[in-house]
Amino acid sequence: MGVVMSLGGFAAPNIGLPVAPIYNREGLLLAIRPRDSADSMENLANSGVTLTAIGAPSFDSQGVIVNNANGYRLNIPDPKELTAIVVFSLSGGAAATPLIGNYDSAAPGGIMLKAGSPTSGRVGSNAHRWNGSANANTQNVSDNDYDGSGLIWAAMRLTGSTMSLFDSAGGVLSKKDSAAYDYANRVIGANNLGIGAGVYSTWSSAAYVNVSEVLLYERGMADDEIWLQRERSKALFTEQRKLVWPN
């Protein structure tokens, strides 16, 4: 049976086909699917969350290119509970690069999801530091078969006292949990959330990533919701934008 994708701001004629939304809207704070120019950085969630450019992010048909000098700052801090989903690609053997978060090496720290490199596993980690202590936690979800081409999907979730990282190597959901620290009662830092340069102002590597999608929720989504959103994104990028999605 045919399916029509539901696109924001577009009213399709009623031809009797079911409509599949392109993202889950419950608790959605940010939805961007950049391409070609800065005009494509509109927040499709219509939540009041805005983005301010840092440096001079560049664009191509696949998305926005960010690194430690170029990116965006949001106008909100990280929620106590959240789910962040990012579709991105690595170029030129990129080293680990922040994707989304508000991490700082000084107290009280923060959180981040970062990209890995094709040789060390494609999804990086999120790190957390709290109450001015040296406590930090890092989780990695890796796919050493990634050859450095095509889109990558990753998700980070904070709910209760647990941090989870997700990848989809081989088309199968991979998850790593950590309950080593009290995430639910962490100190929210003064820095707002950011993308690329907006995540960590003193990140040492200038390696860049190309970001095709960012979805941010102010709730911890269930595993099956996260996977469903992954399938929706895959359909959008492969069927409509004709981009390569290896898994």
Rank of each mutant, 00 (worst) to 15 (best):
A134W: 00
E225S: 11
I195G: 11
N247Q: 14
I195E: 05
W245C: 11
T138C: 07
I85P: 04
A169Q: 14
P34R: 01
L82E: 08
E239P: 02
N14E: 00
V86N: 03
N68G: 10
L29M: 15
G9S: 14
D60C: 05
P13V: 09
P13T: 07
K176N: 08
G2R: 10
I226R: 01
A190Q: 12
G150N: 09
V199P: 07
V87K: 01
N137V: 05
T50R: 13
F237P: 00
G148I: 15
L243E: 09
Y103H: 12
G63L: 07
G101K: 02
L243D: 06
N68L: 08
G110H: 07
N210M: 01
M163L: 00
G150T: 08
P98M: 12
V199N: 14
F237Y: 08
P246A: 07
L28Q: 15
M221Y: 14
L99V: 12
P108L: 00
P108D: 03
Y23A: 08
E231G: 05
V4A: 12
N46G: 06
T159M: 06
T119D: 12
G2M: 06
F88C: 04
Y103N: 09
L215W: 13
W130K: 02
V187M: 01
L243K: 12
N144Q: 12
A11G: 13
I226C: 08
L193V: 05
G93K: 13
L28W: 11
N137I: 04
D182G: 04
Q229V: 11
P13S: 00
L158T: 04
T50C: 08
S161E: 01
N210I: 08
A11R: 14
I226W: 06
V87I: 12
R241I: 04
I76C: 14
G124Y: 07
A45D: 13
K176S: 01
P98C: 09
S105L: 00
G160Q: 09
T50E: 11
K242C: 03
E218C: 15
S204L: 01
N68T: 10
E81T: 04
M163I: 04
P13M: 14
N14W: 00
I188P: 09
V214D: 11
N131S: 03
T97F: 11
F88R: 12
Y72E: 08
V199Y: 02
I85L: 13
V172T: 15
G160C: 01
A56Y: 02
D147P: 02
F237R: 09
N137W: 03
R73P: 14
L90Y: 13
V49I: 10
N102Y: 03
L82G: 08
T119Q: 15
T97R: 08
A206Q: 08
G16E: 00
N68A: 13
I54Y: 05
F59Q: 06
T202R: 04
N144P: 10
L17M: 07
S105D: 09
V214C: 09
G194Y: 14
T119C: 13
I54S: 01
V64H: 00
L236G: 03
S149V: 03
K80L: 06
S204W: 01
L158D: 06
S37Y: 01
G170I: 15
A154G: 11
T50D: 10
S204T: 01
N191W: 09
T162I: 10
D39A: 13
N67D: 11
N68C: 10
S91A: 00
